[in-house]
């Protein structure tokens, strides 16, 4: 009954945060459409910012919200954070300022999400290594200090993009398995979809209905 490709048992909500112009939207589109946005004109379709992945045999629908990164909107973009299971914090390795703002983004994220929210640091535009302004080591150190996962990626080439999203999903799934994430809380950012409708909770008749004999 649940073998169809579009059936999934979980929905994870991600947000992508970071300064304007670090390539948040490009990362998103690289991940969902496997395309670099500049290459082809694109408008957000019906299946907006979603992709179904598989973690440990479970199909998971990722729902990714892009956010506005401008400084002046910082105060009002808090509602984005509500109920996010994963947060991808992005900076531009060619622009130091975007790296410097990470701490404030991190503060926001920590304040506005629940403790089990997985935060992943991404240094974007790794293809522009010649213009690098922030070294890998420096960022790695920052990530380690704050308990973040970290990867340098390129939305243009697609390098490490998948990994970033998948690793985040794995971590979230793990915390579900560990019981750290309460599925019933609306803020968890995770929706569980029972694979088989009418599960044993129902009275015997239900099981009789499921019987194939």
């Amino acid at each position: 009954m649940t073998s169809g490709p579009y059936n999934y048992s979980y929905i994870f909500k991600y947000i992508i945060i970071g300064d304007m112009g670090v390539g948040k939207s490009c990362l998103l589109h690289q991940f969902t459409d496997k395309k670099f946005m500049a290459d082809c004109p694109h408008t957000i379709g019906v299946e907006f910012g979603t992709r179904i992945i598989e973690v440990a045999g479970q199909k998971i629908k990722l729902q990714i919200w892009d956010t506005a990164g401008q400084e002046r909107f910082r105060a009002v973009t808090r509602s984005y954070y509500r109920g996010a299971a994963g947060a991808l914090m992005v900076y531009d390795i060619t622009r130091r300022s975007t790296y410097n703002h990470l701490s404030s983004w991190l503060t926001d994220t920590r304040n506005l999400t629940n403790p089990s929210t997985v935060i992943f640091l991404i240094g974007n535009k790794s293809d522009l290594d010649g213009q690098r302004d922030v070294t890998y080591e420096e960022a790695k150190q920052f990530a380690d200090e704050n308990g973040l996962m970290f990867v340098e990626a390129s939305a243009k080439t697609g390098q490490n993009v998948e990994e970033a999203f998948l690793e985040t999903a794995k971590k979230i799934y793990q915390s579900i398995q560990d019981g750290r994430l309460d599925l019933n809380a609306a803020e968890s950012g995770v929706q569980h979809k029972p694979a088989s409708p009418g599960r044993p909770l129902a009275a015997p008749p239900a099981s009789r209905d499921n019987c194939t004999c």
């Binding site: 909500k13 019906v46 910012g49 509602s79 509500r82 109920g83 609306a186 929706q191």
Partner: peptide, 30 residues
């Protein structure tokens, strides 16, 4: 709530909320 938290409608609605709160708190700086 689940609908509001996920899905396209929820996303855009969140954006609308942001826009409204931006307008409410609009200053010269912003």
């Amino acid at each position: 709530a689940q609908r509001l938290m996920t899905g396209e409608g929820g996303y855009y609605f969140t954006n609308l909320c942001c826009a409204v709160s931006f307008i409410e708190n609009l200053t010269a700086e912003s």
